[in-house]
């Protein structure tokens, strides 16, 4: 008798639990939809408005499809010059950040000392420092110490201060996966330390050098806060965008936005596809 009466009770619990689960799943799905709308709708508006003839970027007040803003962009000297500045700074940042990040990572992964945590803290501190503080300190320091006025150079230095830390973290992650026996084997076979580094350690780190360069490049191109403070009277593409936005909106910025979106979507899709392929194969 007890068994018979107990059974329906058990049966009753299970579906109810499933029902609450379906319900919470539905809420979550709905929320995700909202969230991604929040993320993407503004970007879509931005892209759409780039093709609107209306000189005030808009999608509601549609004045006809046009490509004139795209044609206008390359004729805008300040944007073009800003882009060149951005590229120059990004190049400088890579040249500075990769060796510094690499050196820091190599030291931190092998330093067996209490000082290593302190060293680590100092080396990652720029990541945790507000960008404007980095920009301001760099601007002050280079002017006071060397008489170097704020400009492209100080902008590159200020960016490198924190981008080098990102590079270091990437190199450290890679080095932690290295088989120490490989270096020992090379050493044991009579290779000098320099030869081991050149022939074993560096080739192992090469993929990370490439990804770290790419990420440094992107970080540098995108940076606003730090650059804004450190660049003085010069400008980059992004600070120029910022400057113009303060005076009102121009569809030219939408055009730049479209270019960014296209590059990002292509790159991100390629990245995901590559990742899935390597994951499957």
């Amino acid at each position: 008798m007890t068994v018979v009466t107990a059974e329906p009770a058990v049966r009753e619990i299970a579906p109810r639990r499933r029902r609450t689960r379906d319900w919470s799943d539905a809420v979550l799905s709905g929320y995700l939809l909202l969230f991604f709308a929040y993320m993407f709708l503004p970007l879509m508006f931005m892209v759409a408005a780039a093709f609107n003839a209306n000189p005030t970027p808009s999608v509601t007040d549609w004045q006809g499809f046009t490509l004139k803003w795209f044609e206008a962009l390359p004729q805008d000297a300040r944007f073009v010059q800003g882009l060149l500045h951005s590229l120059a700074i990004a190049g400088g940042v890579i040249v500075i950040s990769i060796p510094l990040g690499l050196a820091g990572a190599l030291i931190l992964t092998r330093l067996q000392s209490r000082a290593s945590t302190l060293l680590y803290t100092v080396l990652v501190s720029p990541i945790l420092t507000p960008g404007i503080v980095l920009g301001a300190t760099t601007m002050i320091f280079w002017r006071d110490a060397f008489g170097v006025e704020a400009g492209l150079f100080t902008a590159a230095i200020a960016q490198a201060a924190f981008i080098a830390s990102y590079c270091m973290l990437m190199f450290m992650a890679r080095l932690q996966r290295q088989d120490r026996a490989l270096e020992e084997a090379a050493l044991d076979l009579g290779a000098s330390s320099v030869f081991v580094f050149r022939r074993i350690t560096l080739p192992f780190l090469m993929p990370t050098v490439l990804t770290a360069s790419l990420i440094s490049f992107l970080q540098s191109i995108e940076n606003y806060n730090t650059t804004f403070f450190a660049i003085g009277s010069s400008w980059t593409l992004v600070t120029e965008i910022g400057a113009r936005m303060r005076f009102g909106l121009s569809p030219m910025i939408n055009v730049i936005g479209v270019i960014f979106v296209v590059i990002t979507v292509v790159a991100a899709t390629a990245w995901v596809l590559a990742k899935r392929r390597s994951g499957n194969g």
Binding site: F40, V59, M245, L249, I253, G257, A268
Partner: peptide, 30 residues
């Protein structure tokens, strides 16, 4: 992808897209 794409788009452009919406002549008022 949905997370990486907006993440990779410049901070200022993300802001810009919102300003477009919120402007007095912007999309929301539209």
């Amino acid at each position: 992808l949905g997370l990486v794409i907006p993440y990779a788009i410049n901070e200022l452009l993300r802001i810009f897209s919102w300003v477009m919406i919120l402007e007095k002549q912007g999309i929301l008022n539209g």
